[in-house]
Simulated assay, not measured.
Amino acid sequence: MIGIVVPVLGIAATLLATSNKSGSTAAPTPPATTAPHDSPTPGPPSSSASTPEGSPAAPPPASSPTPTPTGSKQVSLTTLDPVAYTSFGASTATLDGKAYDDSLVSSAPCPFRGDIEFNLGKQWKKINLAAGMDDNSVPGSVVLTISADDEVLFRGSLSLGSVRELHLDITDKLHMNFHYDGGGSGCDGSKRWIVLGNPSLSN
């Protein structure tokens, strides 16, 4: 009898263990987490995205001279970009002992001639300036011609120690040109500088 009970108890224990195993639920494994990160800030599309493959890129806009300022009653000519020039630049100068801090001065090319031209845009009525040769020049003379739209407004000789105070009418003028010529073909202009002293445009 004892031999029979032991196997029965063993079978019952086995059944109980099996029942407990099948009724239990395993805890779910938590999902793997990653460190938070900032999403990239959207930006403008690149040129390669906006231009079809194989299409030529649009050429950059051509540079142009600074337009004549508008809405001003007076402005220095030196603030405008020339449309064409040779041997001129903005600088300080002295004419017959007087300083002109806002001037256009020649760079004494060889031969001794040059010019500079501006787009006035038909926006100005008067130009005032002092014309002469810088006090650091060697003695000599040069002919200065000022024209606007092919009309000669002034033509005269400039010499060391002499200043021409000019007040010219430029009403409805589009382009204005300053041309100087020392004559000859040599390099005698290497120590002579033409000055357009404090050139001022006004309405």
Rank of each mutant, 00 (worst) to 15 (best):
M1G: 14
I2E: 15
G3A: 09
I4N: 14
V6H: 03
P7Y: 05
L9M: 11
A13E: 08
T14E: 03
S19P: 00
N20T: 01
S22M: 11
S22D: 13
S22F: 11
G23K: 15
S24G: 04
A26Q: 14
A27I: 08
A27V: 14
P28R: 09
T29L: 09
P31F: 03
T34L: 08
A35I: 10
P36Q: 12
P40N: 06
P45M: 08
P45F: 05
S47G: 13
S48A: 15
S50L: 15
P52E: 05
G54M: 08
G54P: 12
P60L: 13
P60S: 08
S63W: 05
P65E: 03
S72C: 02
S72P: 00
Q74D: 01
L80Y: 00
D81P: 00
D81Q: 11
P82R: 04
A84R: 14
A84Q: 15
Y85P: 00
S87K: 07
S87Y: 14
G89V: 09
S91P: 06
A93K: 10
D96I: 00
G97M: 06
Y100M: 02
S103P: 06
V105D: 09
V105F: 10
S106G: 12
S106D: 05
A108M: 06
F112Y: 15
R113D: 09
R113T: 10
I116S: 01
N119S: 10
N119Q: 11
L120T: 08
G121S: 06
Q123D: 06
W124N: 03
N128Y: 05
N128V: 01
A130C: 02
D134V: 09
N136H: 08
S137N: 14
S141K: 12
S141F: 08
V142P: 07
V142D: 01
V143S: 11
T145Y: 03
A148Q: 05
D149K: 00
D149F: 04
D149C: 01
D150F: 04
E151D: 15
E151F: 02
G156Y: 07
L158S: 03
L158T: 04
L158W: 01
S159F: 02
G161E: 05
G161M: 05
E165Q: 12
L166T: 06
L166E: 02
L166C: 07
I170N: 00
D172F: 00
K173V: 04
H175T: 14
M176N: 00
G182H: 11
S185H: 07
G189W: 05
K191F: 13
W193F: 15
N198R: 03
S200F: 01
S200C: 02
L201I: 06
L201Q: 07
